[in-house]
Amino acid sequence: MDRAGLDTARVAKMIDHSLLRPELTARDVLEGCALAARYDVASVCVKPVDVARAARELSGTDVLVGTVVGFPHGSSTTAVKVAEARTALADGARELDMVLDIGRLRGGEDRAVAEDVRAVVEAAREGDALVKVVFENAYLTDEEKIRACRLSAEAGADYVKTSTGFAPGGATLADVRLMRAHVPERVKVKAAGGVRTLDLLLEMVEAGAERFGATATAAILDDLAGRTAR
């Protein structure tokens, strides 16, 4: 994707405003939802316990509610991940960022990884929700990332995502390019972890990312608005 023509409204709809830090209070979540509504971003990504609260707060807006599944290590059983997905949907979530089973991927248990993803995708379809599969690239080799791309796409994922934002490293341009090159066109790439400036976001757009997890949402969009107003 080229950065040409990316105005503030369009870039806002590429951002999932992240509200996942463990210390966030109910007040913090409500303030984050208000910010997301003010900037009209794509979604908020909240902890499972906050989904119902966020859905109430954002009712009547165009901002979707997303949440995480198997977060942050991907080590929950498939049954638990499916239960998390269904509970989130019932609470109002419409986007699910699930962490794949990192250990099984690294161990070469491809069938188990694919079945885990597919089960969550099937649960998500019951509520017409999107699924983004989080790889946690800081722990993976390029070969493992490529396998994760193939397995996620075959299992029906809508997005592949670089990172949770809670590992030693986050999104990199090299990883975004690698992931874009190894998923079919229908599967999109989400960059998360360390995307804190407009310039980096725009570079990642050129590398192939179409969605971003961000906590610096206001700073990024205010910067773009200031540049386009000149």
Rank of each mutant, 00 (worst) to 15 (best):
A124T: 12
R125A: 14
E126L: 15
E126T: 15
E126M: 12
E126G: 13
E126D: 11
E126V: 13
G127V: 15
D128H: 12
D128T: 09
D128K: 15
A129H: 11
A129F: 02
L130M: 11
K132Y: 14
V133A: 10
V134I: 14
F135V: 02
E136A: 07
N137Q: 15
A138D: 09
Y139D: 02
Y139E: 05
L140S: 04
T141Y: 05
T141G: 08
T141K: 13
E143Y: 05
E143K: 14
E144C: 14
K145V: 08
I146W: 04
I146F: 00
A148K: 06
A148G: 04
A148Y: 00
R150C: 05
L151M: 03
S152E: 00
A153T: 05
E154Q: 10
A155C: 08
A155T: 09
A155H: 04
A155R: 02
A155F: 06
G156D: 05
A157W: 07
D158K: 11
V160R: 12
V160Y: 00
V160L: 00
T162Q: 01
T162F: 03
G165I: 08
A167T: 13
P168K: 11
P168R: 13
G169T: 15
G170M: 02
A171R: 02
T172L: 08
A174H: 10
A174Y: 15
D175A: 07
D175W: 00
V176A: 14
V176K: 11
R177W: 00
L178W: 04
L178P: 07
M179N: 01
M179R: 01
A181N: 08
A181V: 02
A181I: 04
A181L: 02
V183T: 10
V183C: 03
V183Y: 01
E185F: 05
E185G: 02
R186E: 14
V187T: 04
K188S: 03
V189C: 09
V189G: 09
K190I: 03
K190Y: 15
K190M: 10
A191Y: 12
A191L: 05
A191P: 06
A192R: 09
G194K: 00
G194Y: 06
V195E: 02
R196W: 10
R196Y: 09
R196N: 04
T197A: 05
L198M: 03
L200W: 11
L200G: 09
L201Y: 07
L201T: 10
L202V: 09
E203V: 06
V205E: 06
V205G: 10
V205F: 08
E206I: 12
E206V: 13
A207F: 01
G208H: 04
G208D: 03
G208I: 05
E210D: 11
R211V: 11
F212P: 07
F212C: 11
G213K: 12
G213N: 11
G213L: 05
A214M: 03
A214F: 03
A216C: 11
T217P: 03
A218Y: 08
A219R: 14
I220E: 01
I220F: 02
I220N: 06
D223H: 15
D223L: 00
L224M: 03
L224Y: 10
L224A: 04
A225W: 06
G226M: 08
G226V: 11
R227A: 09
